[in-house]
Amino acid sequence: MYQPLEGFSKSWIFKRSDPSVAPEDVAQIKMLTELAAREIWRNYISADQLHPDHFSTQDWQQKEAAQVPNGKLLWEKAWDSDHDDLPELLLAHFSAWGEDTTVYFCCHNELVFEMPWGVFKRVWKACLFLDNGPVLVGKKKKQAAQFHSNGWVNLLYRVF
């Protein structure tokens, strides 16, 4: 189900000094095998599209019911700051999640990372070196977010 993080061509994002990722957090970041990633992608993200660039109006992320009112905000300003915390509106959107909630940071159908929500909150800056439209979802949770390379994030609710 998992493959070594060291085998990921961009594993350097978790080894940088800025933003720094603690070794105990790196140990909890699990990269799914391509087969497991495809299953999570199909079940949580899209049965039809392989990459966020290809989402259509048929995908839940694009549906009106999935959009959080006033749920578009800039993540890049917080990412560029000296503060490590996620933007407040993101934290508020995911406030129902416990620190141990399993989250999936889904880059595309063959690249998905699994970690506890508490770890994601600490390593989000490293994760967003992969900012080409990844979708963050929680296991058995309705809240979600899609990060875009233009510095914006859309707060979402998973709808089917």
Results as ranks from 00 to 15, higher is better:
31 M>D: 00
10 K>F: 05
35 L>G: 02
110 E>G: 12
71 G>L: 05
19 P>E: 05
59 D>I: 04
133 G>L: 03
25 D>K: 06
85 D>Q: 13
115 M>I: 09
69 P>S: 09
20 S>C: 09
34 E>P: 04
3 Q>M: 11
133 G>N: 08
15 K>C: 10
70 N>V: 01
103 V>Q: 00
106 C>G: 01
43 N>W: 01
67 Q>P: 01
109 N>R: 11
62 Q>A: 13
63 K>L: 14
47 A>V: 13
156 L>N: 07
36 A>V: 03
15 K>L: 14
139 K>E: 15
39 E>Y: 02
136 L>G: 09
113 F>R: 07
111 L>V: 10
15 K>D: 13
54 H>G: 02
116 P>M: 06
24 E>K: 06
49 Q>N: 12
32 L>V: 10
158 R>H: 12
143 Q>H: 07
40 I>Y: 02
32 L>R: 04
49 Q>D: 05
136 L>C: 09
15 K>W: 11
50 L>M: 08
47 A>L: 13
142 K>E: 14
57 T>G: 13
134 P>F: 03
110 E>P: 00
64 E>L: 06
16 R>E: 14
94 F>D: 01
47 A>P: 04
60 W>I: 11
109 N>V: 10
145 A>M: 12
28 Q>T: 10
112 V>E: 08
13 I>V: 15
55 F>T: 09
57 T>E: 15
149 S>K: 08
89 L>K: 14
133 G>H: 08
149 S>F: 10
89 L>P: 04
135 V>A: 11
44 Y>D: 13
117 W>Q: 04
26 V>M: 05
12 W>Y: 14
53 D>L: 12
145 A>C: 14
139 K>A: 14
145 A>D: 06
71 G>Q: 06
130 L>T: 00
122 R>S: 09
68 V>S: 02
138 G>V: 02
41 W>C: 12
66 A>E: 06
36 A>D: 13
21 V>N: 03
133 G>F: 08
98 G>Y: 02
99 E>Q: 12
17 S>F: 01
142 K>G: 05
6 E>Y: 05
39 E>N: 15
25 D>V: 02
106 C>W: 01
135 V>P: 07
98 G>C: 03
51 H>A: 03
30 K>G: 01
121 K>I: 02
111 L>C: 13
107 C>S: 13
45 I>L: 10
86 L>E: 06
119 V>Q: 00
23 P>S: 14
26 V>E: 14
135 V>T: 15
95 S>Y: 07
29 I>A: 03
28 Q>R: 15
40 I>S: 06
139 K>C: 09
66 A>D: 11
36 A>G: 04
93 H>L: 05
133 G>A: 08
129 F>Y: 11
159 V>W: 10
131 D>Y: 07
156 L>W: 04
57 T>F: 13
